[in-house]
Measured scan of single mutants.
Amino acid sequence: MEVRTIKVFTTVDNINLHTQVVDMSMTYGQQFGPTYLDGADVTKIKPHNSHEGKTFYVLPNDDTLRVEAFEYYHTTDPSFLGRYMSALNHTKKWKYPQVNGLTSIKWADNNCYLATALLTLQQIELKFNPPALQDAYYRARAGEAANFCALILAYCNKTVGELGDVRETMSYLFQHANLDSCKRVLNVVCKTCGQQQTTLKGVEAVMYMGTLSYEQFKKGVQIPCTCGKQATKYLVQQESPFVMMSAPPAQYELKHGTFTCASEYTGNYQCGHYKHITSKETLYCIDGALLTKSSEYKGPITDVFYKENSYTTTIK
């Protein structure tokens, strides 16, 4: 009895394709271990004539594949690729409408935090270190965002349907971005203890939790000093293409032309909904596939993004 075979390709990165001759009487799992086709788990399936010449994702289970996976995804987590594939199996079914010149995501599976993050990423200057993220990001900007969303979920250790947080998501993504040249110098002034300067680099240099107003941050924000008295913390120097200011959701007025974009969060910790506000020729609110415009805006804002380049204080 002759062994019926077909020729397929296996890959971990969709760049390096490895030619395989597979036995049609055995499952993919018996031949390769966990195997995925377009995100779908085909591990328990036997090869079919229609699979001839198709590319299958496999887990990096030998040295060659491990090197290829690390170079593309910059992670050695053995569960990463499987999590990416199972997320992709959902995100490829989502709709990605162009809204006001940006790629958004039609609401499904509690994905409003991903839509808000995706919209924000198209408006701030950011370059990702893992080629996987950078490639998928370019495709997302062009309207094909399924891979990018699935990668975000995998890097953030999230599953489809789980509630997510924009600030946490951005923080994970910033860790995989090139923020080497970003720098922030802060000064804390206390009447009792004097003053202390701190220099922050990388992710810490672009994120701040405690106030939404970048102007206020430049002037000074009140913080408790270690001595128990009130101290003032203010920005001395900022070198970065953008800054992200966050605070627990509270009524906040966004003035046209003073910011790049913002995240609105309605609801409580267990259950809520994100919308995205962007400042173009007027203010726009993007909620999944829905767009509304207004000249002014007041609502429960939790993150505001500002364009920056270089700032030095005039406070002496």
Results as ranks from 00 to 15, higher is better:
V3S: 12
I6M: 13
I6V: 13
I6Q: 11
V8E: 04
D13I: 03
D13K: 01
D13P: 08
N14G: 15
I15F: 13
H18D: 10
T19G: 14
T19M: 13
T19W: 09
Q20H: 14
V21F: 10
V22P: 09
S25Y: 06
T27S: 11
T27N: 14
Y28D: 04
Y28A: 07
G29K: 08
G29F: 10
G29D: 06
Q30R: 14
Q31H: 14
F32C: 13
L37K: 09
D38H: 12
G39T: 12
A40N: 14
D41P: 12
K44H: 13
I45Y: 14
K46F: 09
S50L: 13
S50Q: 12
K54S: 13
K54E: 11
F56I: 14
V58H: 09
V58S: 06
V58G: 01
P60F: 10
P60R: 02
T64H: 12
R66Q: 13
R66N: 06
R66F: 13
F70P: 03
E71K: 04
E71T: 12
E71M: 10
D77S: 07
S79G: 14
S79K: 15
S79A: 10
Y84G: 05
N89S: 09
T91W: 03
T91K: 04
K92V: 10
Y96Q: 03
Y96G: 11
P97K: 10
P97N: 05
N100R: 10
N100G: 15
G101K: 03
L102F: 05
T103K: 05
S104N: 00
S104K: 02
I105L: 03
K106W: 10
W107P: 03
D109H: 11
N110E: 05
A115I: 13
A115R: 01
T116Y: 03
L118S: 04
L119Y: 01
I124Y: 00
E125R: 06
E125D: 14
E125T: 06
L126D: 04
L126F: 13
N129G: 06
P130L: 03
P131H: 00
L133E: 06
Q134E: 11
Q134I: 05
Q134C: 04
A136M: 05
A136T: 07
Y137S: 04
R139G: 10
A142C: 11
G143M: 03
A145M: 00
N147R: 08
N147A: 10
L151M: 05
A154Y: 00
C156N: 05
K158M: 03
G164W: 10
G164E: 03
V166A: 06
E168N: 15
T169N: 01
T169H: 11
S171M: 13
Y172M: 12
L173G: 06
F174N: 01
Q175E: 00
H176R: 10
H176N: 06
H176T: 02
D180F: 04
C182A: 08
K191D: 13
C193I: 06
Q195G: 06
Q196S: 11
Q197G: 02
L200W: 00
K201W: 14
K201D: 01
E204F: 05
V206C: 03
V206F: 01
Y208T: 09
M209P: 07
G210M: 06
T211G: 04
S213E: 02
E215C: 07
E215V: 02
E215P: 00
E215Y: 00
K219L: 10
V221Y: 07
Q222S: 10
Q222K: 14
Q222P: 14
Q222C: 03
P224R: 14
T226M: 12
T226G: 13
G228P: 01
G228H: 00
Q230K: 10
Q230R: 11
T232P: 03
T232D: 01
Y234T: 11
L235P: 00
L235K: 00
L235D: 02
V236K: 04
Q237N: 08
Q238T: 03
E239S: 08
M245W: 03
M245P: 06
S246C: 06
A247S: 10
A247M: 02
P248N: 15
P248M: 09
A250D: 06
Q251P: 10
T258V: 10
C261T: 01
S263K: 02
S263C: 09
E264T: 03
G267W: 15
N268W: 10
Q270G: 07
G272R: 00
G272P: 06
H273M: 01
Y274P: 00
Y274D: 00
I277S: 00
I277Y: 01
I277K: 04
S279Y: 03
S279R: 02
T282H: 09
D287T: 00
G288L: 03
A289R: 02
L290H: 15
L291F: 15
T292E: 09
K293C: 13
S295C: 11
S295D: 10
E296F: 14
K298M: 09
G299Q: 01
G299I: 06
G299A: 08
P300D: 11
D303L: 09
V304Q: 02
F305Q: 05
F305C: 00
Y306M: 03
Y306T: 04
K307F: 05
K307G: 08
K307M: 11
E308A: 08
S310C: 13
T312G: 09
T313G: 10
T314Q: 15
K316R: 15
